[in-house]
Design a protein around this nucleic acid. Structure first.
Lengths: 324, 324
DNA sequence: TTGGCGGTTGCTCATAAGAGCAAAGTAGGC
DNA sequence: GCCTACTTTGCTCTTATGAGCAACCGCCAA
């Protein structure tokens, strides 16, 4: 495509997309045959001169979803569009909303849903529509009684999801991380706790988010970890946490000792589940999102466009010499 | 259009524009008839959910051009797209390039071109293509021997335009603004200067830009005005200058005494010309651009999308109840 | 109940756009 | 200088889309 054709293609595109002329009319105006006009338009598209965006809070990016599914063998992927999004909060809200919507469409319908907790899931619960399921049983899959502030956020997330789905929640009455291994083992040996964990292991679907390994983490806010702890984890290669367990870029636990003191389903238990839905949004979470997907911690990913593109390998520009 | 239809429209748009499905296929997927799909897509467009942009340095915005022509009775309007533009400089370069391209298409061909000077025109001259005209005569229409720095910029702009058009330039050997009225009158009485001005008045086409009334003005840089002078002009309502003459929002000279000391064609002479091309770009120049267009100082406007939209009255959203 | 009325639906028909192909044009190799 | 391989062009034929219209639905009033 030489310069002259390029300019013609742009002129044709202006007339076609902005002036609603037919290719034939454009042909007359630019002294081309209508076939030439059609080819120029096709080339303009191929070269990326024509950008078509769907600007809407519920808009998704299907081609990116497909790439995610294909690239990582995901069962499903939901990618919300970032077109016209002003703030990171808005994008996260869109993602949470999309995840809430996705729950409605789950087939087969979930009977027992294992849930994690955190900011994203709280937002998801708020966006969830009343009556999204009928008689769903919700069970927490990791510990989370907040130590200091806003006690019960973790609980209310699970309860809210259950209530709106016409069922009830089973809470895991345990801190997320214990200070001593023995305490953790004792807690897990407790009949109630063990029962909850058994129920959690029997869930047909798991729903969780991921946290970035930084000082704003919910673990720091809740007092389970200090900022120094986080720095140490980062130094060991941590990119973030999933159900309270810190992982590196390969999805492995970075600190086995810490992991052993963490109450809840293990990463391997999560990996062996048939349906695990990860909801992850925001630029701070790009590294964890990548780790989650690469290490097959989820079968379904709900995320935003930016995060998805950060996870995916760069797209081979689809020129004629694409294979070369 | 209710919520359900809106969501369907978005889903349809995703499949149509991103997945290249036919409306019929979308109908099958969403359990709609293909006509319903067509209507949903039309509604999505109407509501502005579908945004189509042409991303290219030479892309123009024809609908905006039309609005400018219709709204202000312009003979022609060239509006370059701001899609995908990173910096203000890039936008100005695009505008200058568009103006240079426009000169090539002028019909009837210009024999004598009156030009102003300034950053925009210098850039235009640089972007102008060799051989853009054959034997064009270029004449300066306002004074501009730089007092201190970069002497000859004004001259080289005119010379460059002339050379590339296979003709020669007639320079106006005079400062832009004189300190005393008597000196200005004496200069204009000079045979050479008077001759140049006569030639300038006989031009068939005028090409000029406009300057913002701020401290970065070329007049300040060249030493004709101090920043204090500019502040005073602004206080009097100045929005910028055209061919060295400061105007208010209505296109009137803000300081008759200063205007009388300014050498070159008057604004009224410019207004009575048959073809005057204004090249104006950048957010700082929105007010001058509006003044130029409103007061009919130009018959042709070359500008960027943002400036054009700032000049134009807000577009009536084209809903069904558009007239109400 | 019935009869009107605005709005929606699914159709027919006309037009626009795309796929594929043969002919013409072009550049390079011998 | 001529032939060959490749690209570009303008076509035919098919498919997709849009315009316009009659039938239909739901809503309200008589």
């Amino acid at each position: 495509m030489d310069d002259v054709d390029e300019l013609l293609a742009i002129r044709a595109a202006e007339l076609y997309y902005e002036e609603d002329k037919t290719q034939d009319e454009i042909g007359q105006a630019l002294r081309l045959t209508r076939w030439k006009v059609g080819r120029l338009l096709a080339q303009a598209k191929q070269h990326g001169f024509i950008r078509i965006e769907i600007v809407h809070p519920k808009a998704r990016r299907l081609p990116i979803e497909r790439r995610l599914r294909d690239e990582f063998g995901l069962e499903d992927a939901i990618v919300v569009s970032a077109a016209g999004v002003a703030s990171a909060e808005e994008l996260q809200a869109r993602t949470a909303q999309a995840a809430a919507d996705y729950l409605l469409t789950l087939r087969p319908v979930t009977r027992t849903l294992g849930v994690s907790w955190g900011r994203t899931l709280t937002e998801l619960a708020n966006h969830l529509r009343q009556g999204w399921a009928t008689g769903v049983s919700v069970v927490q899959i990791n510990g989370g009684v907040s130590l200091n502030r806003r006690p019960g956020t973790a609980a209310s997330t699970a309860v809210s999801i259950a209530h709106k789905g016409g069922g009830n929640a089973t809470l895991l009455p345990s801190p997320a991380i214990l200070e001593r291994l023995e305490t953790k083992q004792a807690i897990e040996a407790d009949r109630v706790v063990a029962g909850v964990l058994d129920l959690a292991r029997s869930a047909d679907t798991y729903l969780f988010s991921a946290g970035a390994a930084d000082h704003h983490s919910v673990h720091v806010e809740s007092g389970y970890l200090t900022t120094a702890d986080v720095d140490l984890l980062v130094a060991k290669g941590a990119v973030g946490d999933v159900v309270g367990r810190y992982i590196d870029a390969n999805g492995n636990t970075v600190d086995p000792a810490l992991d052993a003191r963490t109450v809840g389903l293990t990463l391997d238990e999560l990996r062996s589940a048939t349906r695990t839905i990860a909801v992850i949004s925001g630029s701070a979470k790009h590294p964890v999102a990548a780790a989650v997907v690469h290490s097959r911690l989820c079968t379904v990913l709900v995320t935003d466009e930016h995060t998805a593109l950060a996870i995916l390998p760069p797209e081979p520009t689809d020129r004629k010499s694409g294979v070369a």
